[in-house]
């Protein structure tokens, strides 16, 4: 839509968790992602998945040290990325 500038926020994050983005952090990630109205996608290498789907996040198989990109599109995009980044940055 022209004239309607929805902010797109993109952030590269390195997975800190020793076990990688396994089931528990993935569940937490989508739980938080679903609080936001923004469309959220997560990318790793060639793969792009819906950030609000746990199966999507698990599909990435992102191990410790891998780089993922969180992208949010919508009015609450910056807050969404900020909160989601915290989960990826957490070592728990």
């Amino acid at each position: 839509m022209e004239g309607n500038n929805m902010p797109l926020v993109r952030k590269e994050v390195i997975v800190k968790n020793k076990q990688g983005l396994h089931a528990r952090p993935a569940a937490l990630f989508v739980q938080v992602a679903n609080k936001f109205d923004s469309r959220i996608v997560v990318r790793r290498e060639q793969e792009e998945v819906n950030g609000k789907s746990i199966m999507g996040i698990l599909t990435l198989g992102a191990e410790q040290g891998s780089m993922i990109i969180i992208e949010a599109d919508g009015d609450d995009a910056s807050n969404a990325v900020l909160e989601l980044e915290k989960i990826i940055n957490s070592e728990e």
Binding site: Q19, I54, L58, G61, E63
Partner: peptide
């Protein structure tokens, strides 16, 4: 950690 995560990814896919 590695194989476990890969298996989860595979199953999820």
């Amino acid at each position: 950690a590695g194989p476990h995560l890969k298996a989860l990814a595979r199953i999820a896919r």
